[in-house]
């Protein structure tokens, strides 16, 4: 996967921390995806400016105990899945 790639959330969708639920949720017209911790952590780095490389660096910094290759695989798999689901896209 391309480290330079920049993802954005689907237009009109919103990622938000929900205190009442203790997790991130992805909000879209008349619906909501409840995210687990790692999905929330990855998606909250998507801002239309950071590229995948930046995201990986930040995640590595935040979770220094995670082996780099595993982190990379997990992030790539999640991003693929999120594209499949139509949550995010890239130019």
């Amino acid at each position: 996967m391309n480290r330079d790639r920049i993802y954005r959330l689907r237009p009109g969708w919103r990622l938000q921390w929900e205190e009442a639920q203790g997790r991130h949720v992805l909000l879209y017209p008349e619906g909501m995806v409840k995210l687990n911790d790692s999905a929330g952590a990855i998606l909250s780095l998507i801002d239309g400016e950071r590229n995948v490389g930046d995201m990986l660096d930040e995640l590595q910094e935040r979770y220094p105990q995670a082996p780099a290759d595993e982190l990379q695989t997990d992030v790539h798999e999640f991003l693929d899945e999120a594209v499949q689901q139509g949550w995010i896209h890239h130019d």
Binding site: Q16, E18, A20, Q21, V25, L27, E30, G31, M32
Partner: peptide, 8 residues
């Protein structure tokens, strides 16, 4: 405040 997040 109760936790509702979707509003129509």
């Amino acid at each position: 405040a109760m936790g509702a997040v979707q509003l129509g």
